[in-house]
């Protein structure tokens, strides 16, 4: 077994800002100096913390009963352009935009001219000509969101591109961990499942190692990407060993098409070797939390008794944090356009 390249002590020092309140940051773009949110790869640790802190305020508002509304994005148009099917992420972004008072428009690939052969760039230019104030984009190809961001005049948020990145998912996961365990540094986090095809895994590996955690990958060798040691993580093929003393167990969704024999023999065998059962979870720390980005395959990668555990499962809380994090991202990225003092 190999250990992470990170020195936990040094990492803890580097990321002491993770629990700093947002009011401590100087006003102005220095706190988050990006025009777009394409990936975690472009972010510094304090920028992640800044978004998480901003999201905390929206969590409060979202829980405050009737008045779940703020008008700061009133008059702005946000286009959610989803070239790949999605229900949860699209809904989450739509609610986030509407709670901030923006006019939110959804575009589904199935209804768009993409099916008629229009190129991605042409579609992007069309959306741009409609003068959106922000675009949220999901696409099945790695790099597609950056390609669009380079061509349009408004901030672009990546809602998932191919196997590349899904930054808001990593941010909401970090916020969930921070709220549950009081910190998101110096922890041992096991990411389990189909890492090879997972943008959630890539964004989480980047965010969680950046914040100073020991990140482990637990996956069958057929679903482990190459050169993982260069990502500063430790890889395991044995689930029990990989979960040992973990603070966080993060499960990934296994796509049905991976179970047809190309990557895995069967769903049954996957469950036997890599399914999160109550017994397996005992290897982790007693208070370890269980995460899943959804939608779950109950009985395949995760047992229902674990998924529905009242204290350890964070799965519904992740959905809740998702709205807050996306509100924070939409707010921060449109500040320049709205002329918020200090953001120019």
């Amino acid at each position: 077994m190999r250990f992470s390249h990170l020195d936990p002590k040094r990492s803890a020092l580097m990321t002491s800002a993770t629990t700093r309140p947002a009011s401590d940051y100087p006003p102005g773009g220095d706190a988050f100096r990006h025009r777009h949110l394409i990936g975690i790869a472009q972010l510094a640790p304090w920028e992640i913390s800044y978004v998480l802190d901003a999201a905390e305020e929206w969590v409060e508002m979202n829980r405050s009963g009737a008045a779940k509304h703020d008008d700061r994005l009133a008059g702005l148009t946000i286009i959610n352009a989803f070239f790949e099917n999605s229900t949860r992420t699209l809904l989450s972004f739509e609610i986030a935009g509407k709670r901030l008072g923006a006019d939110v428009v959804n575009m589904h690939a199935a209804q768009s001219s993409v099916k008629k052969g229009e190129t991605l760039i042409d579609t992007a230019m069309t959306l741009n000509a409609m003068r959106a104030d922000a675009m949220v984009i999901r696409h099945q190809s790695s790099g597609a969101v950056q390609l669009i961001a380079d061509k349009v005049d408004c901030p672009v948020l990546n809602a998932g591109d191919g196997r590349h990145e899904h930054p808001t998912q990593a941010l909401l996961d970090a916020l969930t961990i921070r709220r549950r365990l009081g910190k998101v540094e110096g922890l041992t986090i096991a990411i389990c499942g189909d890492v090879l095809h997972s943008r959630v895994a890539r964004s989480n590996i980047l965010a969680l190692t950046l914040l100073g955690n020991e990140v482990r990958i637990v996956a069958p060798p057929t679903l482990t990407p190459p050169a993982m040691e260069r990502m500063h993580v430790t890889t395991f093929t044995d689930m029990d060993e990989g979960l040992k003393d973990a603070d966080v167990v993060m499960m990934l969704r296994l796509q049905n098409e991976r179970m047809d024999g190309a990557y895995l023999p069967s769903a049954r065998e996957y469950h036997a070797l890599y399914g999160l059962t109550p017994k397996r979870l005992e290897k982790a720390k007693p208070q370890a939390i269980v995460m899943h980005p959804g939608p779950m395959n109950r009985g395949v990668e995760i047992d229902s008794s674990v998924a529905d555990h009242p204290t350890r499962s964070t799965i519904t809380e992740q959905v809740e944090m998702g709205v807050a994090v996306r509100m924070a991202c939409l707010d921060i990225l449109t500040r320049r356009k709205r002329g918020v003092p200090g953001w120019n």
Partner: peptide, 15 residues
Amino acid sequence: TDGEMATRLGLASAP
């Protein structure tokens, strides 16, 4: 080609 770059970019790669 398999390697850090392909993994970081999320591109399908071969050894």
